[in-house]
Nucleic acid binder design. Structure first.
Lengths: 225, 225
DNA sequence: GTATTTATATGACATATATCATATTTTAAG
DNA sequence: CTTAAAATATGATATATGTCATATAAATAC
């Protein structure tokens, strides 16, 4: 069983507040798991009873809307935690988590985490700050969905994807989303998303190489987002 | 200076975890304030450095979108707290708070609250749960904005307003929002909102008496939300 | 009480976006 | 390699929603 001390998750998440002793306990109770691209980590409505550490890979958090379409609420990448909200609220998860790439995740049972809350104030504050950050982001996204056009949201999302996940050697977005997923992130029909990508392509804002997307005119994309 | 012990906010908010001693300290450091309808409690970008207890009245939390329109993110009513996220994140507030009715609020400086976080674990957990609830709600609203039609959002919002704030003796919604505010809650143009209200009226779903709104067919409204 | 401003209402029209159909390309299966 | 399935692309069209104009009603100021 690998140690948690050097783990990337510890470096970037609320867990950075844990001391050596706590990390040893963590390493003892955690279970590791490989998740293949497309595999479900947990599903809306499930009782998860713990949190996941994302050691490697990226997943999408989705919510099923009444019209039957999935909406991507957030992407979670290596170094981050999953399932904190549900654990704290003591409720089933309100979002599904599905791997966008092969992933390495660790599961930490609730009992262990709750102990940290009691004894480690810095850890509590870290978790609180993370969730506050998520809330701020969610509020902002809500307003975007309500007030921006699909075109603006597409431009914004493309920039976000490059900023957050970077690009390959050929300058294409490192994170690989299908048109369908991109559409469900910006909240539109797949065809509309594809059509707008074509438009952006013709306008020289982006370049499409198969399903790869290369951002060509970032200033213009920023201006229109 | 009034005591906090019997305050409605204490009864319903995270503050219920405070003991007698803590409540006495609270009563000593708090400042009370009357806020007139339409008055601003704080504005997006401000440093608030504490939290507000809503002792009476209702306010809207709004966010200015890039197109210059305000979007109503949430309504906050008596018994609830304001400004927790910003205080925890140690950032300026990301939303503005404006009174929808005359209000009574108390301000508690950050220093005092942070002390509770250190010493009272139950209080911390309560705050965390509140924010987790807000986050869940925000995610859900985000998906609504992205996937539902304006008509569906209007129906849903009318039901929410009646559920949350109740109705007058004449069955009209107790909370009085202008058409403009209603529109900025559902995320649409004022004219579209007015038009849909007219449609709902003609269909017998609601009744319009001046600017008062009476819900007539709740099952149908539910079905279409 | 009258005038002025503001909110509500409705029509006409423009535009963004969804939907349905179908072609083409890519990926997966046998 | 060949075939079937899935993803991407594009056209045609319908529909929802925004915008601008204007009318009426209500609230506020004087």
């Amino acid at each position: 069983m690998s140690k948690c001390e050097q783990c990337i998750v510890r470096e970037f998440s609320s867990l950075k507040a844990l001391n050596k002793e706590e990390l040893v306990k963590l390493a003892e109770c955690k279970t590791s798991r490989l998740v293949k691209k497309g595999e479900v980590i947990f599903e809306e409505g499930e009782n998860v009873n713990g949190i996941f550490c994302v050691k490697d890979g990226v997943c999408k958090l989705t919510k099923l809307s009444q019209n039957g379409k999935d909406h991507i609420v957030k992407l979670v990448t290596k170094g981050e935690l999953l399932g904190q909200r549900s654990m704290i609220s003591e409720e089933p998860v309100n979002l599904s988590a599905v791997a966008l790439e092969d992933m390495q995740v660790c599961f930490i049972p609730k009992s262990e985490i709750m102990g940290f809350f009691d004894k480690n104030n810095q850890f509590s504050m870290n978790v609180m700050r993370t969730i506050c950050g998520d809330l701020k982001e969610a509020d902002s996204q809500m307003v975007n969905m309500a007030q921006k056009t699909v075109k603006e949201r597409l431009a914004e999302t493309l920039l976000y994807l490059q900023d957050t996940f970077g690009k390959n050697e050929d300058d294409s977005l490192k994170i690989q989303l299908s048109r369908d997923e991109l559409a469900s992130m910006i909240g539109t029909a797949t065809e509309s998303c594809i059509r707008l990508l074509s438009d952006f392509n013709k306008l020289g804002l982006i370049e499409l190489k198969g399903k790869k997307i290369i951002l060509k005119d970032i200033p213009k994309l920023k201006k229109m987002s």
